[in-house]
């Protein structure tokens, strides 16, 4: 049951991600991807979203490639919809959120599944 519920959450987030415009992406504050990579680990983002931010059906949606627009992203961090625990500014500063966001923007697209023999 939980898995199915959270899969729905993942689906909603994906739709959200798909609607992100390039303009919104540019509104993100400058962040350090290197710092963000470390923060992604230390703040435990990977526990639910996995180490490559690819998400997990049962626990958390995919975050990258193509993350949510920054404003929606930070809104989700501070006042999450669904199951995600809230990260307030006292715990994760706006700059740290920006760093994590910068890291997520560096994650490349996956290979085309048609090029992976085990998926065909």
């Amino acid at each position: 049951m939980t898995g199915v519920k959270l899969l729905l959450t993942a689906g909603v987030a994906l739709l959200w991600a798909a609607s992100a415009s390039a303009q919104q992406q540019q509104q993100a504050p400058r962040g350090s991807a290197d710092s963000g990579r470390k923060l992604y680990e230390s703040f435990g983002c990977y526990q639910c979203h996995n180490r490559a931010a690819q998400g997990a059906g049962a626990t958390g949606p995919r975050l990258a490639p193509g993350p949510l627009p920054f404003q929606a992203f930070i809104q989700q961090v501070r006042h999450p919809r669904y199951e995600m625990p809230p990260y307030e500014a006292a715990i994760v500063t706006d700059q740290q959120v920006a760093d994590i966001y910068a890291f997520l923007q560096t994650i490349p697209k996956p290979p085309d599944p048609k090029t992976i023999p085990l998926l065909n």
Partner: peptide, 25 residues
């Protein structure tokens, strides 16, 4: 779902999609 499985396909530690499909093969 096939497309979803491709994410983190070459990651280490391994993704569970990769583990599952290596076993299935």
């Amino acid at each position: 779902l096939r497309g979803e499985a491709a994410y983190a396909w070459d990651a280490s530690p391994l993704s569970l999609a990769r583990l599952s499909m290596e076993l299935w093969a």
